[in-house]
Nucleic acid binder design. Structure first.
Lengths: 129, 129
DNA sequence: CCAACAGTTGACGTTTACGTAAACGTACAT
DNA sequence: ATGTACGTTTACGTAAACGTCAACTGTTGG
């Protein structure tokens, strides 16, 4: 029997609120089964949550994350769907590569900014002496 | 005399609406001078806009981008302000490094997903024959 | 038994980042 | 002088991603 999780366990593990998990479910991103009315999450749910939150940190919308999550299981797609899927994947990859570039530029900028701050700091104390 | 830009030039160059530029100004991110009532943007404004949009592509909020833009000129800060600035810079860098990691993982995942799609595609046509 | 606590479903509130429409000024080509 | 093309302000509208009640249920320790 593969591991199961309560809403609180997942919320605590990933540092999100239970509201967030219910919201993701409402949007079809998670699919917990019910024990009576109480949600029970599978490892697959947990994995999807991990992917969604990764997407979130990258600035993706829920819909985008949703799309990406769906890309992981192409088994039930027909030829047309597969082709659109591949197109989406390539588009998303292009976006991520652009983002990677932005990211490196911003890191360089931050290095510069820090250096300027440190310079200013070593010049500043004179004002106070 | 350094180059100046109209709102339309910047909007077209960066593919944003004029509304967006006015909104950024309202939030203190841009500071165009006025010729009569009409906005005139400096190269510095243009640079800041570039930074803001870069931040946007990385999923930063305007407030975060704003903070980063302000980090670029530490000349008028006192020791305390400089120290908080440095702290912010390091925090943001940590965040970006995390993001860089997320990004690479997602790129790997997309490669996998694409491969699965291609596999499915080469298996599929049998259904149609 | 019963209080306390975790879970549930609505439903409305909030913030961010603009979109959109109204109502107006200015300039220039026809 | 008129249209039309661009600019302005003011203000209300909107979509996304939750936050925050309210009102209720299920269950577990004392």
């Amino acid at each position: 029997m593969t591991k199961r999780f309560t809403i609180r366990q997942l919320a605590d593990e990933f540092d999100v609120t239970t509201r967030t998990l219910r919201f993701y479910e409402e949007r079809g991103l998670l699919n917990p089964t019910r024990v009576n009315t109480t949600r029970s999450y599978s490892s697959a749910d947990r994995t999807r949550l991990r992917l969604i939150l990764r997407g979130r940190r990258l600035g993706l919308s829920l819909e985008e994350s949703s799309a990406i999550v769906l890309m992981y299981d192409p088994t039930s797609a027909n030829t047309d769907q597969l082709n659109t899927l591949i197109a989406k994947i390539r588009e998303k990859r292009a976006q991520l590569l652009q983002q990677q570039n932005d990211l490196e530029l911003m890191l360089l900028d931050l290095n510069d900014a820090e250096e300027r701050c440190l310079d200013a700091l070593s010049a500043e104390p004179a004002h106070q002496a």
